Amino acid sequence: MSHKQIYYSDKYDDEEFEYRHVMLPKDIAKLVPKTHLMSESEWRNLGVQQSQGWVHYMIHEPEPHILLFRRPLPKKPKK
């Protein structure tokens, strides 16, 4: 599979999560399941490479070739 064609967005966040999206080329996108969110082993098997802790959290129906990921931000110590 062509890992060079996978595009990784910059990371962005809110108060709770860090987010990123990953755009897959058409040949890989056709392998994305339409019935469920992928486990880490499933998206890694497609060639997506990112650190541990990312969760495929949403399917964007109009653009199924874009995978939406998030992971919890580290808890800030209370002052």
Score class of each variant (00 low, 15 high):
Asn45Ile: 09
Glu40Trp: 02
Val22Trp: 01
Gly47Asn: 06
Glu16Asp: 15
Pro72Leu: 08
His36Glu: 06
Asp14Asn: 04
Val48Cys: 04
Lys79Thr: 12
Phe69Leu: 03
Phe17Arg: 02
Gln5Leu: 15
Asp13Lys: 14
Lys34Gly: 08
Asp13Arg: 14
Met38Gly: 02
His60Ile: 07
Lys4Asn: 08
Asp10Tyr: 07
Phe17Thr: 00
Lys75Gln: 11
Glu40Pro: 08
Met58Arg: 14
His36Leu: 03
Tyr57Arg: 01
Arg20Ala: 02
Asp14Val: 02
Gly53His: 07
Tyr12Thr: 13
Gln52Val: 10
Leu68Asn: 05
Lys78Val: 13
Pro72Ile: 05
Lys34Pro: 09
Phe17Gly: 02
Met1Asn: 15
Ala29Asn: 00
Lys11Pro: 13
Met38Cys: 04
Pro74Ala: 13
Asn45Gln: 12
Glu42Pro: 09
Met23Asp: 06
Ile6Leu: 09
Thr35Met: 08
Glu15Gly: 15
Pro25Glu: 05
His56Tyr: 05
Lys11Leu: 13
Arg71Asn: 00
Val48Arg: 01
Tyr19Thr: 02
Glu16His: 14
Tyr19Leu: 02
Asp14Pro: 02
Phe69Ala: 02
Leu73Met: 09
His21Gly: 04
Ile66Arg: 07
Ile59Asp: 03
Lys79Pro: 14
Asp10Val: 08
Leu31Asn: 09
Glu18His: 00
His36Cys: 00
Tyr12Pro: 04
Lys30Phe: 10
Arg20Cys: 13
Arg70Tyr: 00
Val22Cys: 06
Lys76Ile: 14
Lys75Gly: 12
Glu63Ile: 06
Asp13Glu: 11
Gly53Cys: 04
Pro72Cys: 05
Tyr8Glu: 01
Tyr19Asn: 01
Gln52Asn: 14
Leu24Gln: 01
Met23Cys: 13
Arg71Tyr: 03
Asn45Lys: 13
Leu46Pro: 03
Pro77Thr: 12
Lys11Ser: 12
Asp14Gly: 06
Met1Glu: 14
Tyr12Cys: 09
Arg44Leu: 07
Arg70Ala: 02
Pro77Ser: 13
Glu16Ser: 14
Asn45Val: 07
Leu31Ile: 00
Lys11Ala: 13
Val32Ile: 11
Pro74Asp: 14
Val22Thr: 04
Trp43Arg: 04
Ser41Cys: 12
Lys30Asp: 11
Asp14Tyr: 07
Thr35Ser: 12
Lys11Asp: 04
Lys78Leu: 12
Gly47Met: 01
Val22Arg: 02
Pro64Trp: 05
Gln50Leu: 15
Ser2Leu: 12
Ser51Lys: 06
Gly53Gln: 09
His21Asn: 15
Glu40Asp: 06
Ile59Phe: 13
Ile66Val: 12
Met1Gln: 11
Met58Phe: 04
Pro77Ile: 14
Tyr12Met: 06
Ile66Met: 09
His56Lys: 00
Trp43Gly: 02
Trp43Met: 04
Tyr8Gln: 03
Asp27Gln: 11
Lys26His: 11
Asp27Ser: 11
His56Glu: 03
Glu42Gln: 11
Lys26Leu: 09
Thr35Pro: 04
Tyr7Phe: 06
Leu68Pro: 02
Phe17Ile: 06
Pro72Trp: 03
Val48Tyr: 00
Arg44Cys: 03
Glu61Gln: 11
His21Gln: 15
Asp27Ile: 07
Pro62Cys: 14
Glu63Ser: 11
Asp10Lys: 15
His21Lys: 15
Lys11His: 09
Glu16Pro: 03
Glu18Tyr: 07
Leu24His: 01
Lys26Ala: 12
Pro64Met: 05
Leu73Pro: 05
Lys76Ala: 12
Met23Gln: 10
Ser2Pro: 13
Asp10Arg: 11
Tyr19Arg: 02
Ser39Trp: 04
Glu61Leu: 08
Glu63Lys: 07
Trp54Arg: 02
Gln49Glu: 14
Val55Pro: 01
Arg44Asn: 06
Leu37Ala: 03
Tyr7Trp: 08
Asp14Phe: 04
Met23Asn: 07
Lys4Gln: 10
Gly47Ala: 03
His60Arg: 08
Arg44Ile: 01
His21Ala: 10
Leu31Pro: 07
His56Ser: 01
Met38Gln: 01
Gly53Val: 02
Arg70Phe: 00
Gln5His: 15
Tyr57Ala: 02
Pro33Lys: 06
Lys4Phe: 07
Phe17Trp: 15
His36Met: 07
Val32Trp: 02
Pro25Met: 01
Asp27Lys: 10
His36Lys: 10
Phe17Asp: 07
Asp10Cys: 07
Gly53Leu: 02
Ser51Gln: 09
Met38Ala: 03
Arg70His: 00
Gly47Glu: 03
His21Pro: 02
Gln49Trp: 01
Lys34Met: 08
Ile66Cys: 07
Ser39Gly: 07
Asn45Ala: 14
Met58His: 10
Gln50Ser: 02
Ile28Val: 12
Gln50Ala: 05
His21Ile: 09
Asp10Leu: 06
Pro62Ala: 15
Tyr7Asp: 08
Pro25Gly: 09
Lys78Arg: 12
Glu15Gln: 11
Asp10Thr: 14
Glu15Leu: 12
Glu18Met: 04
Ser39Thr: 12
Glu18Ile: 02
Glu16Ile: 14
Gly47Leu: 01
Ser2Val: 12
Lys26Val: 08
Tyr19Ala: 01
Leu24Tyr: 05
Ala29Phe: 07
Thr35Trp: 05
Lys26Arg: 10
Met38Phe: 03
Lys34Asn: 08
Leu31Arg: 12
His21Val: 09
Asp27His: 12
Asp10Gly: 12
Ile66Lys: 10
Lys34His: 08
Arg70Gln: 01
Pro33His: 02
Gly47Ser: 06
Gln5Ile: 15
His21Met: 10
Arg44Met: 04
Leu46Met: 03
Phe17Lys: 01
Arg70Leu: 01
Ser41Tyr: 11
Lys4Cys: 09
Asp14Met: 04
Leu37Pro: 05
Ile6Cys: 06
His65Ile: 05
His3Phe: 15
Met1Val: 11
Ile59Trp: 13
Ile28Pro: 00
Ala29Trp: 06
Leu67Thr: 01
His3Ile: 15
His3Cys: 08
Phe69Glu: 02
Tyr57Pro: 04
Leu46Ala: 00
Arg70Thr: 02
Ala29Glu: 05
Pro77Tyr: 12
Met23Gly: 07
His65Asp: 12
Leu67Cys: 04
Gln50Thr: 01
Ile66Asn: 02
Trp43Asn: 05
Lys75Arg: 10
Glu42Thr: 06
Ser41Trp: 09
His3Asn: 14
Pro74Leu: 12
Tyr19Ile: 00
Gln5Pro: 13
Ser51Asp: 14
Pro25Arg: 03
Pro72Asn: 11
Pro62Asp: 15
Ser51Ala: 11
Lys4Ser: 13
Glu15Cys: 06
Pro74Ile: 12
Gly47Thr: 00
Asp13Val: 15
Pro72Glu: 09
Glu63Cys: 10
Pro62Phe: 13
Leu37Thr: 08
Met23His: 15
Gln52Met: 08
Val22Glu: 03
Leu73Thr: 06
